[in-house]
Amino acid sequence: MIEVRNISRSYGDTLVVDNVSITLPAGGVISLIGANGAGKSTLLSIISRLLPMSAGTVTVEGMDVMTTPGDVLARRLSILRQDNQMTARLTVRDLIAFGRYPHSKGRLTVEDQGYVERVIRYLELEAVAHRFLDELSGGQRQRAFIAMVLCQDTEYILLDEPLNNLDVKHAVAMMKLFRRTADEFRKTVILVLHDINFASCYSDRIVAMRNGRIAYEGPPEEIITPHVIRDVYGVDADIHEIDGKRMALYFR
């Protein structure tokens, strides 16, 4: 369980996250949605201790993220931000293997090797595993970063716009993989998503943010409604139910 208590964060005079409190239960896929600048990425970075908060506390399984030693937390929670610039030239396999760093501190055991090979297989990166990251396409690189985070094998996996740069096929495969990670391996996957229909189809819960606050929270049936989407994004959407999933059409 992740407990967020009265978190605020300001940049200069602008309050980006405004006194947010929320409890995220363990297990399942949780999507954070909202317009640009609503504070989703900032909230995710604060929960994962990449950004300090101006006020408030975050605990993961009872551990305060600001005071718990970094390596202890790194075995329970992993985070991938968006727009990852990588200057170091590493092969895909080496990068993924660094996901085991919190567990092995660089000396890979046979078990660690097993994790690395399994993740490479899950993400269909076998063909590029030996190549350097700077020789890959944006989508391949994004999948390699996600593979590293999955290789970390933490109970909580936080990903900021993981579908960035992915084509339709790989985006669907990625969402299915998150679903499987939550269902089969009992992980908690927390995603910032821009595509509300992906959020609708694959999430157990959706958290909608607006102006630094949590505006709505609940299962997809409650969030994917014309009223909520109008309120959160300021667009009119028709909602259709297809195969039991609610889809928002907002292209007109």
Binding site: V72, I79, N84, L90, Y101
Partner: peptide
């Protein structure tokens, strides 16, 4: 300390995620 330097070379966010000071 080579592995630590490599992890630091991935950037501060990656390093923090991997539990490196």
């Amino acid at each position: 300390a080579a592995d630590r330097f490599t992890v630091a070379g991935l950037g501060e966010d990656f390093a923090t995620n991997l539990g490196l000071n």
